Simulated assay, not measured.
Amino acid sequence: MNSSNEYEEAMKIASELSIDKLHSFPGNDTSPSGEKMLYSSPNSTVYLDSLSSESELNMNNSPRKVKELCVVKTVKGQAFCYLLGKEYRILKELDHPHIIKPIEFNQTKTLQEQSASLYLPYYSKGELFQLVKSKNGLGESLSCSYLKQISSAIEYLHELNIAHRDIKLENILVDDEANAKVIDFGFCYLSEYQTEEEHSKDIQTRVLESSIEANIMGTAAYLSPELIELTSNGGLSICDSPDKIAEKLDILKAGDIFALGVTLFTMVTGVAPFASATKNDANYRALLLGKRKKCDWFWKKHIIAKSMTEKGLLSEEFKNLVEGMLDPNPSDRLTIFSVVNHPWMSKFINPASEETNQVLC
């Protein structure tokens, strides 16, 4: 195996591993099991299926078999199986009400091919992105309710020294009770992550997996400026020495906060704050200018934000929180603890039940 070529090919189509496509690509095709296909690509398929599970006892005190509708994601190839397997092993150890729980994982390996399947709960309401898009933004009150749930999940992860690395609206599902569920953990980073079979892996396998972990994961529009810069400087391999592990984790945690800031802004306004965190982007340049001159230039430059501000739809607490989460300097950026305890988070103690009911409808 040419590990360099395999790595390049894996990175070329790595986005196909993103579980955010579970509800984004509905289709009429059928899956290998005859169920509805949600997404298909050369290296992955995502479809609905039913799993039999034992439920409450029947009248004869025997376990009753029930069918549970779930989402099945199947991938092919060594790189993809590695990431999907890592996602399952990490998810099954997590226990948080706003993080998805896996159901089952299967992996097969033949001389010709590796494949793996991850079974997850199916939520018919789909992604938070679709809800935001359908309503042209959720406003501050309902967005605050969702941010509390999402940030509590990220705080839980960061306390476990886990960085998610791909926080975005498409990676948050809405469950049947209209609560948030964070998904897509294939790209996450855990400094102590290691499996029992790690020592038995051949050198080429370890090189491939190390190359994947050193790559900058995530979605371009949500990437922090320092991660974008690292992309052009060889990725995260500069932090892979043992004495740099803590530094790498801090970089990735700060990246999570930046992505969460983009998520929050988009959730409230219905549009992204900028296309990318680079000086080539006019809205991001306005954010930088506002930071340097201590003014609200960004809020005057961004068309939607300006309009909502003029209508009194954006509070100063919201603006302060967004600016702190999107601070271009990672050392000055808010931590997840600061986000959770920000004054804006207690501004809407009881979000209007009518708004929540709209989500459930």
Rank of each mutant, 00 (worst) to 15 (best):
residue 226 E to K: 08
residue 30 T to I: 05
residue 257 I to D: 05
residue 135 K to W: 03
residue 321 L to Q: 09
residue 252 L to H: 01
residue 291 K to D: 10
residue 146 Y to I: 00
residue 174 V to P: 01
residue 252 L to N: 04
residue 180 A to N: 05
residue 86 K to H: 04
residue 35 E to R: 14
residue 77 G to K: 00
residue 360 L to M: 05
residue 3 S to Y: 15
residue 238 I to G: 10
residue 90 I to N: 06
residue 183 I to R: 02
residue 222 Y to K: 12
residue 235 G to P: 07
residue 260 L to I: 02
residue 273 P to S: 04
residue 204 Q to L: 13
residue 59 M to T: 14
residue 187 F to T: 10
residue 44 S to E: 10
residue 14 A to G: 00
residue 160 L to P: 02
residue 189 Y to Q: 03
residue 168 K to N: 04
residue 249 L to H: 08
residue 296 D to R: 08
residue 289 L to T: 15
residue 182 V to N: 04
residue 12 K to E: 14
residue 151 S to E: 03
residue 333 R to H: 04
residue 190 L to D: 14
residue 275 A to L: 10
residue 151 S to P: 07
residue 197 E to M: 08
residue 309 T to C: 07
residue 263 T to P: 00
residue 159 E to F: 14
residue 350 N to Q: 12
residue 336 I to V: 14
residue 293 K to L: 15
residue 141 S to G: 05
residue 245 I to Y: 09
residue 154 I to V: 15
residue 147 L to A: 08
residue 66 V to G: 08
residue 245 I to S: 09
residue 275 A to N: 07
residue 225 P to N: 11
residue 345 M to I: 06
residue 175 D to L: 02
residue 73 K to F: 03
residue 212 I to V: 00
residue 18 S to H: 11
residue 354 E to G: 06
residue 61 N to T: 03
residue 232 S to I: 09
residue 77 G to R: 03
residue 360 L to P: 01
residue 350 N to S: 12
residue 193 Y to H: 03
residue 145 S to F: 14
residue 280 N to Y: 12
residue 340 V to L: 10
residue 37 M to N: 11
residue 44 S to T: 12
residue 154 I to K: 06
residue 341 N to M: 15
residue 209 E to C: 13
residue 70 C to I: 02
residue 166 D to V: 03
residue 126 G to K: 02
residue 347 K to G: 04
residue 357 N to H: 10
residue 241 S to E: 15
residue 14 A to C: 13
residue 267 M to D: 06
residue 312 G to L: 06
residue 97 P to E: 11
residue 185 F to C: 06
residue 229 E to P: 11
residue 32 P to Q: 03
residue 294 K to W: 11
residue 71 V to H: 13
residue 223 L to G: 07
residue 19 I to H: 08
residue 122 Y to K: 10
residue 243 D to M: 03
residue 361 C to A: 14
residue 29 D to F: 12
residue 79 A to C: 02
residue 197 E to S: 10
residue 132 V to K: 01
residue 278 T to V: 10
residue 117 S to Q: 10
residue 298 F to A: 03
residue 284 Y to C: 04
residue 84 L to R: 07
residue 183 I to T: 11
residue 175 D to H: 05
residue 288 L to P: 04
residue 264 L to R: 03
residue 25 F to I: 13
residue 357 N to C: 14
residue 97 P to N: 13
residue 213 E to P: 02
residue 139 G to R: 07
residue 20 D to G: 06
residue 278 T to K: 06
residue 86 K to Q: 02
residue 158 H to N: 14
residue 193 Y to W: 00
residue 24 S to H: 13
residue 348 F to R: 12
residue 269 T to P: 06
residue 157 L to I: 00
residue 284 Y to S: 08
residue 61 N to H: 09
residue 237 S to C: 10
residue 315 S to R: 08
residue 126 G to N: 00
residue 26 P to L: 05
residue 46 V to S: 14
residue 168 K to G: 00
residue 11 M to F: 09
residue 2 N to T: 03
residue 19 I to M: 08
residue 74 T to C: 09
residue 285 R to F: 12
residue 224 S to F: 00
residue 153 A to F: 06
residue 311 K to L: 13
residue 207 V to E: 15
residue 127 E to F: 11
residue 73 K to P: 01
residue 85 G to P: 13
residue 26 P to N: 07
residue 318 F to W: 07
residue 261 G to A: 00
residue 346 S to Q: 12
residue 57 L to C: 10
residue 142 L to K: 09
